[in-house]
Design a protein around this nucleic acid. Structure first.
Lengths: 113, 113
DNA sequence: CATTTATATTCTCTTGCGAGCATATAGACG
DNA sequence: CGTCTATATGCTCGCAAGAGAATATAAATG
């Protein structure tokens, strides 16, 4: 999940995902839309590929990139307990928020209790 | 929103938020839990502060940091359209994937004489 | 085969950022 | 006031990563 967050930290990559949300696109198309040089686009796409956020299909010399939203699930899961904070009452936060169900959490570093 | 993503890209900072989700905490407490040197913790807290993700209250020489989940809202909003993809029916996704040529991403051998 | 087109990769340069240490600030307390 | 404690800030170093240009690969086409 750490990888997903890292990859999403880059605005251009979020923009790529947003574009792919509509439909699969070619690298050239993305390049044009992003206003980036083509190598930069390819490198961002590589990062997205390695994070499993996009998949690529070949068609001759062209590459169709399509969205693969699955890894975003982990992000959403991390976000979930926070979302319920603003979803419900806001003052529960100010006091002692007690109603906290156990979420499958992924502490990325070592924890010593 | 870009700032939030950037700040969340750091595992230690997500961990801090997770700790503050339980209750407000002192810097020293966070430092101990994270296993980081105190200056590092303070600097992460500064980043979180500047992103509006935490707020700090003074009590003499101590500082109580508490969670401020509001900026996560933007993250959640960005994520929302993707969540719908796996949450509800992802047939919309499948549909436009169907129209596309499909091939696994790394074809290692390509024979051509 | 030569060339053109579409994309990927390599290289260098530069910037940002986190770690780590030393130090500054600021309140508490004798 | 001097000192201790809690936290913040400044500094340097090293590393990861993005920008940008050049080049490599690979398929299509003549």
């Amino acid at each position: 999940m750490s990888e997903a967050f890292q990859v999403l930290a880059e605005p251009a990559r979020r923009q790529i995902l947003d574009l792919l949300r509509e439909r699969p696109r070619l690298v050239g198309e993305l390049t044009e839309r992003l206003g980036l040089p083509q190598p930069s686009t390819s490198k961002h796409l590589k990062a997205l590929r390695e994070a499993g956020l996009v998949r690529v299909g070949r068609d001759g010399t062209r590459r169709w990139y399509r969205l693969c939203p699955e890894p975003l699930r982990a992000v959403e899961q991390w976000l979930a307990p926070y979302r319920r904070m603003w979803a419900g009452s806001f003052e529960a936060l100010e006091r002692h928020l007690d109603a906290m169900p156990d979420e499958p959490d992924d502490p990325p570093a070592k924890e010593r209790t």
